[in-house]
Design a protein around this nucleic acid. Structure first.
Lengths: 146, 146
DNA sequence: GTGTGTGCAAACTGTTTGCACGTAC
DNA sequence: GTACGTGCAAACAGTTTGCACACAC
């Protein structure tokens, strides 16, 4: 997690202009514990900036991703963004299907995976989906895919 | 893995017409050990059927997925299809970034993941990407993402 | 004042749908 | 013969790009 000022600081230190819109965007991600889709961002920003266009949202998401402030993940239902993890060591995530909030998993399955000698591992993905404490109470049924 | 006849049998048993095109499509997947994108399928099929249209490819991929013959997976670079695993027990995959071939991983990391009591797990994803024996020799460098 | 950021419109990719004709059954 | 499959064209969603104006620096 980072504060708005930290994020804004990174932007200006890279020679990027700090506009109201970018400050708001930084604030949105600083306050959001989980993942946001471009549409989520657009909807939120649109409340403040009436003339907002989708392309500016995309441009700024891209800029902040290239800056290393945001990270992008591809889910079944599309691309989403969140603040880049500041954790120093390698980890994975449990992701709430309702609120998008993430919880770190320090255990890495690769350590225990027997890889055949002739297979060269480049990267891996381990993600656990479900409902977090707050959401599992409201959302006990629905969404059935195992 | 299934034979063309097995796949075709499933189709006709469900009241679907067995056209030349669908037979060829079944043959393509029966002969392909890895994942295929809709474009891969279109390119392959287009060699045989000159007037082929993309929408028919999509329609048939969808039909075969709904039939349970194919399974669809979302990768960073788009949606891909392969024959649905016949393995009876739960497993994961090592996926070759070059040829798309998959190798089963019987080890399931969920068994060893400590889940907080207040998190309800719905599903999980564990995928290992790299280069298989045949491809790691040809492709020793390139693609650097860990 | 200069150059970057923005909104607008349009292009573009991947995918889906409506329609009329063709073909498996 | 009938209903489903196909190709074509068009629609559609998500994303990107070109341009002119606006604003952060």
């Amino acid at each position: 997690m980072q504060t708005v000022e930290e994020i804004v600081g990174v932007m200006s230190s890279q020679g990027l202009r700090v506009t109201d819109q970018r400050r708001t965007l930084a604030g949105l991600f600083a306050d959001t514990p989980g993942y946001l889709s471009p549409k989520d961002v657009y909807d939120y920003m649109g409340r403040t900036y009436s003339g907002l266009s989708f392309d500016t949202v995309y441009r700024n998401l891209r800029v902040m991703e290239e800056l290393g402030v945001l990270e992008q993940v591809v889910f079944e239902d599309g691309v989403k963004f969140k603040l880049h993890c500041r954790e120093t060591h390698h980890h994975h995530h449990m992701i709430c299907l309702q609120c998008g909030r993430t919880h770190p998993i320090t255990f890495c399955p690769m350590e225990q995976t027997k890889v055949p000698g002739d297979f060269t591992v480049v990267k891996h993905k381990f993600e656990v989906f479900g409902y977090c404490s707050s959401c599992s109470q409201e959302e006990p049924s629905a969404e059935g895919k195992a």
